[in-house]
């Protein structure tokens, strides 16, 4: 009896954590897909939807696994399209509006620089399914770091206007990065079960990735007196409802629609 209960808590913790990571990917992927057809040049118009596809594909693999673990008949589509705003546990950073190219690239960079060491840890962790997902995602996210990083250097160390916009994006988005490293009870259980690695080394890698890039890009990391958090508890920013309205439109208007 006691053993069963213990096992169930572990499964719940794993499911919650997977959904958090999946939500981060789905929402960032959706935000990035908003650029489709609006990029300043053809190469970028191919790059951004490609990366959005990576993120949405990664979220799909995770939702699908969460559905198997939960075993209540919910599917990957139910997670992606049929929850309400308070049920999404993505961090606030990924839902922030695209604003301009500087904001978009910085958001991608902050997130990719965080996921890269996290996936590396998962790929060496104790959960076999996640190891399979992580091994692919780790390679894909490597391209994202490089793509966004190149743009950030070009803009930060570019013209007066581009440097000003890039630094403005840093001021605006940096307060949201702390939430990436919060460890709730579910994540803590996953760390103890060796599914995830400790967060400290992930933070160390992230700090040095950001620091090195900002030095090249001549950007300054601001003081953050008030870190922005809440997404992991389902408390989202104002634009999130609008984002969901578009993301969920098809399933809400035509319930059960499929290919």
């Amino acid at each position: 009896m006691a053993v069963t209960e213990l096992k169930d808590t572990a499964t719940d913790a794993l499911t919650n954590t997977i959904i958090q990571i999946a939500d981060d990917h789905l929402i960032l992927g959706h935000r990035l897909s908003e650029w489709c057809g609006h990029a300043p040049m053809l190469e970028e118009d191919l790059s951004m939807p490609n990366m959005a596809l990576d993120l949405i594909g990664q979220s799909r693999a995770l939702y699908s696994y969460a559905a198997t673990l939960e075993n209540t008949g919910r599917t990957e589509d139910d997670f992606a399209y049929l929850r309400t705003d308070r049920e999404y546990t993505n961090c606030l950073l990924v839902e922030r509006p695209n604003t301009d190219f500087a904001h978009t690239m910085l958001k991608q960079f902050y997130f990719a620089a965080f996921m890269h060491p996290l996936w590396q840890g998962i790929a060496k962790g104790s959960n076999e399914t996640l190891r399979g997902i992580a091994a692919k995602a780790e390679k894909e996210i490597g391209y994202h770091i490089r793509h966004a990083g190149e743009w950030i250097v070009r803009l930060g160390d570019g013209t007066e206007e581009s440097a000003m916009r890039m630094q403005a994006a840093v001021e605006e988005l940096h307060p949201y990065t702390g939430e990436l490293f919060t460890v709730d009870e579910s994540r803590q259980q996953c760390i103890e079960a060796n599914v995830l690695t400790n967060i400290d080394p992930v933070k160390t890698v992230w700090d040095s990735t950001v620091h090195n890039l900002f030095e090249q890009a001549k950007l300054i990391i601001p003081e953050v007196p008030y870190p922005q958090t809440g997404g992991r508890q389902g408390q989202h920013t104002e634009g999130f409802g609008f984002l969901l309205a578009e993301l969920q439109y098809m399933q809400r208007a035509y319930p059960g629609a499929s290919w």
């Binding site: 959005a52 990576d54 990664q58 799909r60 693999a61 692919k136 894909e140």
Partner: peptide, 11 residues
């Protein structure tokens, strides 16, 4: 085996 996570050809 899937190729890329987001490969639309998977299905």
């Amino acid at each position: 085996s899937p190729t890329y996570s987001g490969c639309p050809a998977l299905d």
